[in-house]
Computed example of a mutant assay.
Amino acid sequence: MSLKIRNILAIETYPVRHPVLRAGRPINDCHFEGDDLSTTYHLGAYVNEQLKGVASFLMHQDVSIEELKTFNIKQCYQLRGMAVLNEMQGQHIGKNLINHAEEMLKNKNALALWFNARESAVSFYKKNGYQIVSEPYEIATIGTHYKMYKAL
Rank of each mutant, 00 (worst) to 15 (best):
R6S: 13
N86S: 15
Y146D: 01
Q61R: 10
M1T: 10
E12I: 11
N28K: 14
K106D: 09
T70H: 12
L105M: 13
Y77N: 02
A10D: 00
M88W: 13
Q91E: 12
R22K: 04
H18I: 01
N107G: 14
V84N: 00
M82S: 05
Q75V: 06
F71H: 11
T144F: 04
S120P: 08
M148W: 05
G34A: 02
S120G: 10
V47R: 08
A45W: 04
I5W: 00
K150Q: 14
N86C: 15
G81T: 07
H100E: 10
E135P: 07
H145E: 09
W114F: 15
N7F: 13
A117D: 01
M1F: 07
I65E: 03
L58F: 12
R80H: 08
Y77M: 14
N28L: 05
S2N: 13
A101S: 12
K126Q: 11
L79V: 13
S38M: 10
D36Y: 06
K147P: 02
Y41P: 01
L152W: 07
N48I: 09
G143A: 11
I27C: 13
I5E: 00
I98W: 02
E103I: 14
L9I: 08
H42E: 00
H145A: 03
Q89S: 13
N107T: 13
H42S: 00
L79K: 06
H145R: 10
S38D: 10
Y149I: 12
I5H: 01
V133K: 04
N107W: 04
T70M: 01
Q131I: 15
I27Y: 03
P26L: 09
A83D: 02
M1N: 08
L9V: 10
N128C: 15
L113C: 07
L79W: 06
P19K: 03
S2R: 09
L9T: 05
T144A: 07
Y130I: 03
M104C: 02
T144D: 05
H18T: 03
K106F: 04
P26G: 00
G34Y: 04
L113A: 05
S134R: 00
A140E: 13
E12W: 07
I73W: 09
E12T: 09
S64N: 13
Y14G: 05
Q89M: 11
M104R: 07
I65W: 03
L37S: 13
Q75Y: 02
A151E: 15
G90Y: 10
L105S: 04
